[in-house]
């Protein structure tokens, strides 16, 4: 199978969270007991039962202009994933399939969680305390390998989520960046299979920045 890439067109996202529910539905992830913390954003964090979470950002600038931005936060599916490298300690625990999807298997139970998560620049892996299994977004490889789109993409009503062959998606993303103009940019960078088209500088969003030389990244 060829390399597949998912593009999140942030300017088109309406924050409906169909993707968040579709992810739980397809992957049969449990709901969490939450509370309203003064925001529509919930659950409060990624977890073993929440692999895709829409982050809500709202602001009012000095001119009174109000802005609401919604960012779907999830695994970036790095082309050269640090978790895959560290995962080699337990063969089969972390694999990358032909499509580029990075998948955590059952054997992650045998891995050291801190070791794994400290190697992720984006703070994605989460451990199920009851089973010990570490999990995250699989890019719906069980759907994709059967010719379907990821569940989140299928559910998106606004066209904010696009999925397809890597080169096609890179062209789509650069086209959108050109159309948006200004500071629009690609996050976190081409060496990932989940890409965000951000209308403004990535520093304006609550997104982890990949440091220079990130391939050898280790949390101190």
């Amino acid at each position: 199978m060829e390399r597949m890439t998912l593009v999140i067109d942030v300017a088109k996202c309406t924050g409906c969270r169909s993707c968040q529910v579709a992810c739980k539905n397809w992957n049969q992830l449990k709901g969490e007991q939450t509370e309203n913390r003064g925001s529509h954003e919930n659950p409060p964090d990624l977890s073993a039962n929440t692999w895709n979470r829409v982050v809500f950002v709202e602001s009012r600038d000095a001119n009174g202009k109000i802005d609401m931005t919604f960012i779907s936060d999830r695994c970036r599916h790095c082309e050269d994933p640090p978790c895959l490298e560290i995962g080699q300690s337990v063969p089969g625990a972390v694999v990358q399939d032909d499509s580029g999807a990075v998948i955590f298997g059952k054997k992650t139970r045998e891995m050291d969680f801190d070791d794994l998560t400290s190697n992720c620049p984006y703070d994605i892996p989460r451990k199920n305390e009851a089973t010990g299994r570490i999990s995250k977004c699989t890019m719906c490889n069980d759907r994709v390998s059967n010719g379907l789109q990821p569940a989140c993409v299928k559910a998106c009503p606004s066209g904010a989520l696009q999925f397809g062959p890597r080169q096609e998606m890179l062209r789509f993303a650069s086209g959108r960046i050109e159309a948006l103009g200004g500071d629009a940019n690609l996050y976190p960078g081409e060496e990932h299979n989940v890409l965000w088209v951000l209308p403004e500088s990535s520093r304006k969003y609550p997104l982890a920045q990949a440091p220079t030389g990130w391939k050898n990244y280790r949390v101190a």
Partner: peptide, 22 residues
């Protein structure tokens, strides 16, 4: 978006209830 009318069909639905819990 997450709830429907008086919530009879959605408040029992964990994936919806967790997003707008109250």
């Amino acid at each position: 978006t997450e709830h429907w009318q008086t919530g009879v069909m959605t408040r029992w639905q964990p994936w919806l209830a967790e997003m707008e819990p109250g």
